[in-house]
Design a protein around this nucleic acid. Structure first.
Lengths: 136, 136
DNA sequence: CGGAATCCTTCACGATACTG
DNA sequence: CAGTATCGTGAAGGATTCCG
C-alpha cells in the first residue's frame, strides 16, 4: 500500500503555540470575554437594534445591574459595543453593536449553533461519563 | 421613498432568548468551557495527533498538572476528548480528540482566527477607551 | 508517569444600599 | 434611569506534597 503524503507524526508540531506565544494573548482574552456569564446573551440582544440599559436588563432577565454594567463595559473597551448617553431627565443610555462587534457575530453564532446542535451528543457523553466514573 | 420591508423596530424581539431559555444552558456551558484558561491551547495541541500527558504539559508550558488534568477531564466529560490508559511501567496515558471534538474544531478555529485578525482593532479600541475614561 | 489531595489567593458574580 | 459603592460567597487556578 502506498504511503500517504505525510505521516501524522511528521506534522509541524513545533508550530503549535506555546503558552507564551504572543498570538495566544488576544485569543485567550476574547474567549474569556465571550465565556463570561452574560456576554453571549447581551450580544444576542443587541443584534437587531440598539437597546436601552433597563430594556436590556429586563429582556435578558436574571442579571444584576452590576453584572450587566460590567459586561457592557468590557465589550465597550474592546470596541465591540457603542455606548450613547442622552443627558435627558430621566437619563437615557443606548447600547449597540459596533461594525467590529457585528463581524464577531458570525463566528460567535457558529459556535453557539454548534452547542445547540450537539447538545444531545454532549449530554449523553456526560451521562456515560458519570455512569463509568461515578456521579461525584 | 418606499419603506423597507420591515422596520427594525418590528423585528422579532420576543424570539430573543431570556436567561431561562433552555437553549441557553448548553451554550453557556460550552462558552465557559472554551473560555477556561487552558482549553483552547489543549485542543490546539490535540488537533494533529494523540498526545501523552507530560508531552502535552511540556509543549503547552506554564500549566500546572492540576489545571491540565482538570481541563482534560472537563473535555472528556463533554465527549470531546478520548482518554486511553496503557497500564505499563511507567504508566502511559494518551489523549486525543473524538470525532465530536473534531467537529468543534471548525467553529472554534473561526473564533480564534477572528481574535488574531482583529487584534489590532481591539487593542486600539482599548487604548482609546483608556484615554477617554482614564487608565483606572 | 500520571495523577490525587491539600492549602491558598484571586476574582467573578450576586445581594443590597445609595446617588445624580 | 442608569449607574457607583460595599460586602459576602463560591469557584478557578497556582503551589506544593504524596501515591500506585
Amino acid at each position: 500500500m502506498k504511503p500517504l503524503a505525510k505521516p501524522v507524526e511528521e506534522l509541524p508540531r513545533e508550530q503549535l503555540p506555546h503558552h507564551e506565544d504572543p498570538r495566544c494573548v488576544p485569543v485567550r482574552r476574547l474567549l474569556q470575554t465571550v465565556g463570561s456569564k452574560w456576554c453571549s446573551l447581551v450580544v444576542a440582544h443587541l443584534e437587531y437594534e440598539p437597546r436601552r440599559f433597563s430594556d436590556l436588563k429586563r429582556s435578558i432577565g436574571g442579571v444584576t445591574q452590576k453584572s450587566l454594567t460590567a459586561t457592557l463595559r468590557e465589550l465597550e473597551k474592546d470596541g465591540l459595543v457603542n455606548r450613547v448617553v442622552t443627558p435627558s431627565i430621566p437619563p437615557r443610555v443606548d447600547y449597540s453593536l459596533t461594525p467590529l462587534g457585528r463581524t464577531l457575530l458570525v463566528p460567535l453564532k457558529a459556535l453557539t449553533n454548534w452547542a445547540i446542535e450537539n447538545e444531545a451528543a454532549v449530554s449523553s457523553a456526560r451521562e456515560r461519563f458519570e455512569r463509568e466514573n461515578g456521579p461525584d
